[in-house]
């Protein structure tokens, strides 16, 4: 169910003041478990499947899954974030893979490029 944490990859963004998935989730659903040090979703029922956490994860340790009652086992959709491009790799339940790649930022003025504000 969405999102699924690949615990062998997740390190809870150790060392950061806030993990990337905790930071990204618009529903405040992601949390790093104090006992395991791994991210988890507090309540998968409340997930919108917006994939913000999946995009934000620096270790590709989060997969978004459609609840089984709505979609069959198992398909995957993986975002790979570039500087001004995004690449998506989708595999359907029959194993058919499709790749999409497109620009998500214009080559903008330097002021915009450095405008991360963090």
């Amino acid at each position: 169910m969405p999102p699924r944490i690949l615990t062998e990859k997740c390190n809870g963004c150790e060392g950061l003041p806030e993990s990337r998935c905790e930071e990204a989730c618009p529903g405040n659903l992601m949390v790093v478990d104090a006992a395991t040090g791994k991210a988890r979703c507090r309540c998968t029922r409340d997930c919108w499947d917006c994939m913000s956490c999946t995009k934000a994860c620096p270790r590709a340790a989060i997969e978004t899954r459609i609840p089984y009652q709505l979609g069959y086992h198992k398909a995957s959709l993986r975002p790979i974030m570039g500087k001004d491009h995004i690449t998506w790799k989708c595999v359907d339940i029959h194993g058919v893979e499709t790749t999409y790649k497109y620009r998500n930022r214009l080559a903008a003025a330097p002021a915009i490029r450095t405008g991360k504000g963090v």
């Binding site: 979609g71 069959y72 359907d92």
Partner: peptide
């Protein structure tokens, strides 16, 4: 809504 593409994939 990227997960709609995932939904279609999960319906094959």
């Amino acid at each position: 809504r990227p997960s709609f593409v995932l939904f279609l994939a999960s319906r094959g």
